[in-house]
Design a binder for these strands. Sequence first.
DNA 1: ATCTCCCGCCATATG
DNA 2: CATATGGCGGGAGAT
Length: 826
Amino acid sequence: LKTPLKQAATSQLVLTERQPDCQPLTTPPKPKETPPADPWTPTSNLKMLISAASPEIRNREQRRQLSDSSSEVLQTKHCLQEHLLGDEYEKSQPSRKEKSLGLLCHKFLARYPDYPSPSQKSYICLDEVTEELHVERRRIYDIVNVLESLHMVSRLARNRYVWHGRHNLPQTLQALKKVGEENKYIQQIQMIKKREYEHEFDPDGERNEGTASSFGSSEQSDMSFVELPGVEFRAASVNGRKYKSLRVMSQKFVMLFLVSTPQIVSLEVAAKILIGEDQLEDLDKSKFKTKIRRLYDIANVLSSLKLIKKVHVTEERGRKPAFKWTGPEVLPNTQDTKLEATSTTCSPPISESIPSKEQCSKALFPSKGKQNFTRHSSLIKLVKTIENDRRKIQSAPTSPVKISAIFALQNNLSRHSFLHQAIKIHLWGGVFLFVFCLRTAEEMQMKCALSSPEAVSRPEPSQQPALSQPLGVCPASHSSVSPVILPHPQSGLSYAIYLHPSQAHTVTTYSPGFMLQPLPCANVTGIKSSNSKVFNKITTEEGDTQRGPDEPAKSLAAEERPNTKSETSSQRCLKRSQALPENNLIKRRKSDEESLDTSLTFFPSGYLIPLTHCTHGNKAECSNKEKAGVCSVQHTAYSSPITGVIPMPASELKTVNIPAFHITPLNIMLSPNSIAAAPVLSNSCLTSSSTSSAPNPSSSALNFMLQHIGLIPAGVQVPANPVLQQVPASSQSENISHSSGSTNVQEGKVSKNILQLHHGGLSGKYSAVPSAPKEPQEPQAVTENFFRTPGGPNTEPSLSANSDGTQRSSQGTLYIPQRKLEVSED
DNA sequence: ATCTCCCGCCATATG
DNA sequence: CATATGGCGGGAGAT
């Protein structure tokens, strides 16, 4: 109704003025056929007018014509017809189609190069765009949001975005794929299909327990936006907490493609999954409809990007709309850490984004030798934050204070990437608790592999030098503290964990615990072998039913997948923890059972102090390297009084129940189960043993963090720390670290077996499971306890097992209904 | 009728 | 407070 009206009374002039953009479409005559030579053509006149009126308009017109000519032939034709009808050319003007988001997106994209030269960034001004494209702002947001989800643009400030083009696409996709795998989308899809299938026979069918519910709870997959190391999100304030629903949806949608074998996703399934995640599976009709609407929006943009295209899958049910991935194939997630994705929680309740364990570990333990940390603005931010928080702390020393900081690092490649990192420091009851993350999963695995249980428990580590036993336990040479040397092969640094004798004891005693994650998880190899049958069967099935006429070799790729999922479960774990508001340590302490999984993620422990002494060879190199441009920061940070603010009377420490101590490759934690009341290394411990001007422990800790985050050159920090120097392990350690450093090749192999030692589920017991799963052949134990195992192509028998170990109604294996699906390409 | 999805109201977030 | 963002769903073209 409206549109016609607008056109109704248009005179040539009016038309000219307000429709330069639609000209090619509106103009009746042969737009291209006839050269604009004929001055008598109404068109040419018009054009002249336009040109004369404004060069700007002309340019715009030209530009548009270019982009239009390529794809909008249809429209043109359409228009042509219209106008043949004479003066009644009003109605069709902006035929709905011409306003489609897809078309608009095309126009939008036409404005920027796919691969802008990194040197000259192009900025996007929403005002300009809306004006030039003649669209409502709202529409632009839709486009931009999706582009943002792919990191093709990023927001700078109000009205401003930066155009990245497709440079980031590969990384983004890889990251998304990874996350998608972690989210178990494959399984979910199967689940939905199954349910669907069941409904066929049981229309009024009530929830078929076991299957559905188990997912609802486990599929936490919060509202998280997958970030990329290289794509900075403007000031936290700008990108700040806000539901990034469309963005997130977009990402998830993409994930579905990347994860599913025939890369085809039906809207229905996608919608269900996206809804289901939120939780309840109330088949809310309207909600579903809305979701679908949004998916269409997203799909339009993705289509414009040529990442997907619409198809139709036909099954008994009928013809359902779906989309097929036509974007680039995503590499099977190389071990490359630099391509790490970052998942930041954005869910409303959590006021602060919690860094993923991996991110942290990445920051803490740079795995690549060459790293050139650049002084990034974020670093400054960090320092400021610390300063600020320090004040707070001083003013309210007793209240729980959380200090969080965001670190940004340059990543391994020269690529402009950095990680948003946060290290949380909790002050609670006078206890200085460091909440941080340790190593990346890979590193852990490696460590696991290297530090075989035998080696650990062996009294004389030196006996097995050839085996490059990295983890040595130094006998408590000091009355109060027992350093445990933890060489970090990749970085060439070793760390000492100072523990109380009791703890040290625990460590050695429970040495196997080094290899076991408190939370169980499946051993890939094992699973793979044990379930290979099922596996194959399923993939085949899928091929028969869903696979399009093309790519008949996907099952192979699928089979390899498990191996590439090294850290998935750990991340999941992390996610889980992220999902729960875990700001309050106290809360975590109190709550038991269910909080267990949370608490295990980050846990305060003793101090980790780098043993730079043990790394002669690397040391120099390291420090030089890192000395790059962060010294100034170092000073600030180092001298920061924050380090001195936490006096911890030993007595006080004892009031804190610190349970038995376990060290896992993933983190150091204190099992809430056992209440061994082992005090964390107290001040006195260190201070007593350290004479002179040795920095207090807090300082050391801070140093440790900063150093490993790259803020402080490795060598510079903590001035002679007597304790460290006294560690007689030097010779040993040296060997150890050296050997371990040169065992890279092995590492790979070995780690394979331990690859999947992550926190898989939430067994209430983390008490060290003394059986080291070095046997790839013991899938049973592992598999059966854990809910979904990573990598398993959707249908592990364990699927129905409950995560809490309660072994719910085991529905047996998941039955995937066989259907005939045809994909028609429209 | 079903599939698509534009349009724009209006709650929120930002500055 | 004004403006920028963006969730959301009615309802109307397209098929």
